[in-house]
Simulated assay, not measured.
Amino acid sequence: MGRWQKLQTNPTVICDTGHNVAGIRYIVQQLTAAMQNGTGKLHIVFGMVNDKDIHSVLHLLPKEAIYYFTRASVKRALPEKELMELATEVGLHGSSYPTVVEAVKDAQTKSLPEDFIFVGGSSFIVADLLTNRDALNFH
């Protein structure tokens, strides 16, 4: 669970617990491959904890995606507004949300069936997502 786990189709929703430079680099390769054949947009629900190499990770993320910056429900979580500010500095654009559920719901609302939603950046983000599967209609 939590490793390139598919939760929904139309739009596709995938989560992954990759949370460091090596993990995010691999996830970006997978996202690039997944998006090559599609015509939809990439939506990324993203949060990190405050003791990771945030700047290096943000530089790896695709600039063309629509971002939903959020925070996990743990004390180590980087505040979503701070994450959004750091991301904006490297050319990533989106909005911030106080919970993973709110971020994912907004991504679902703004996505078309051909779009792709990725949720990750931290094991804790994925844990919040999977804990709230029913509230998000992922069965």
Rank of each mutant, 00 (worst) to 15 (best):
L92K: 09
E80G: 05
H93M: 10
Y68D: 07
P113T: 12
Y68K: 09
G47A: 02
P98C: 01
I66C: 07
A34T: 14
P98S: 03
L7D: 00
R25F: 12
A107V: 02
M35N: 06
K105W: 02
P11V: 02
D128A: 05
K75I: 04
H139D: 07
K105D: 02
H139L: 03
H93G: 05
L58S: 11
L78D: 03
M1L: 09
E64I: 07
M48T: 02
L78G: 00
I66F: 10
V45W: 08
L136D: 01
I27V: 15
G23P: 10
V13M: 10
G2M: 09
R76I: 00
D53V: 07
L78M: 13
V104L: 09
V126H: 00
S123I: 04
V28Q: 14
D115P: 05
S96G: 08
I24N: 03
V21Q: 14
E114D: 15
Y26I: 06
T17V: 15
K81A: 14
L7F: 02
N137Q: 12
G91Q: 10
S95P: 05
K63V: 00
N132V: 01
V104D: 14
S123H: 05
I24H: 01
Q36R: 14
G2D: 11
Q30D: 03
F46L: 13
H19G: 06
E89S: 12
F138M: 09
N132F: 02
F69A: 01
Q8L: 14
G94P: 03
G121C: 07
I44H: 10
L78V: 00
L78C: 07
I27G: 11
I54L: 11
V126I: 05
